[in-house]
Design a protein around this nucleic acid. Sequence first.
DNA 1: CGCCAGGTTGAAGAGAATCAAGTGATGTGG
DNA 2: CCACATCACTTGATTCTCTTCAACCTGGCG
Lengths: 203, 203
Amino acid sequence: MRKQAAASPLTPAAGLIEPEGLPTSFPRDATIYREGGRADRLYKIVTGTVRTHKILLDGRRQIGSFYLAGDTFGLEGGDQHAFSAEAVTDTELRVIKLSEWEKELVLALMGRELQHAQDHQLLLAKTARERVASFLLEMSDRIRSTDEVELPMSRQDIADYVGLTTETVSRTLTELEHQSAIALTTSKLIALRNRATLSRLRA
Amino acid sequence: MRKQAAASPLTPAAGLIEPEGLPTSFPRDATIYREGGRADRLYKIVTGTVRTHKILLDGRRQIGSFYLAGDTFGLEGGDQHAFSAEAVTDTELRVIKLSEWEKELVLALMGRELQHAQDHQLLLAKTARERVASFLLEMSDRIRSTDEVELPMSRQDIADYVGLTTETVSRTLTELEHQSAIALTTSKLIALRNRATLSRLRA
DNA sequence: CGCCAGGTTGAAGAGAATCAAGTGATGTGG
DNA sequence: CCACATCACTTGATTCTCTTCAACCTGGCG
């Protein structure tokens, strides 16, 4: 069994900072910030899900991360955003201004971002089966869940995150279902039937 | 034509810290630190080249970064090393102890690591041609060079860095040579004949 | 209902991996 | 200094995975 992940991976140590900005709402697919813009604030998700992405020259889209309720995002390596951020679902978030930053918080957040980026590097070196299995396990770890994962994002989002096509993602999920590793209750509600199998695939 | 690499990408702002540790020598392929070990020091390369890597469960090796003379490395997201570090060539480096760390330095370094990790994520989403072209341009940018890049690392190292096999790397280089984008003086000494072509491929 | 976007499935093709052989460099001992 | 061993790199033939293109479901919603 897994740790219940009371604090999801990208959440700062509790109590370090309490954002005082008023909660702002973003509808599905709204842009929160754009690549190239000044990275001078942090965003803490109250409800909803956010994705960061970048469009490559040939038009392909690469998703960097997904952020869930409770997560803080907006921090990049430099002072400009390297990715754009959008709401995956209707989202409410609190803005933390740059002036309020604390070194400790920034350091902790950046460390998490770095670890995530490194993990993602490894994921992108894997096979389709491994990528999809890793994705499901990552989401399951981050969503407080009883082996039922409710995915807020579309197949296209998943595909762009793990570096595959929607068709391959779909086929791979079907394959995992045939292997009884998962069960697709609906296309966005997935039951993890056999974590051991998935973990083995995680490689 | 040797490297000078006065300021390569991962070098901290000059003057922030001058490591006082005595220079230590590592022969080719020696391990500098291992995955899982405490990440409580930084390493500044005086001469040589270093690679960080991780072995996946199925035995594949993924290289995270290469570090050249002047670069500082050893910083990871958490307090444990997520990668192992090894000397690519005979290497001399200075150790900076944790106690000497300054927040500013750590923040700057981590920011660079994060950007590199993000760039690498994008690289791993590309085709073989694009990956190899990107790799050559990255190295050319980091080695102060007049269009002649001397690679310190083997084809296997390159392959594990860009997520391909040595055969594919080799074939791709040959292909780039036929397109007059590069010239292979020797297997490790590569002349960039047409940066525009390479940049276009970078995607 | 019937439409339509999102998702799944099928068939064909492209790109890289794999398996295998050959070439070239480097090093060692005679 | 040469003969041989060894290792790195290149090239060739085949296989396999994933993409591409296309058709077909499915489930919300007007």
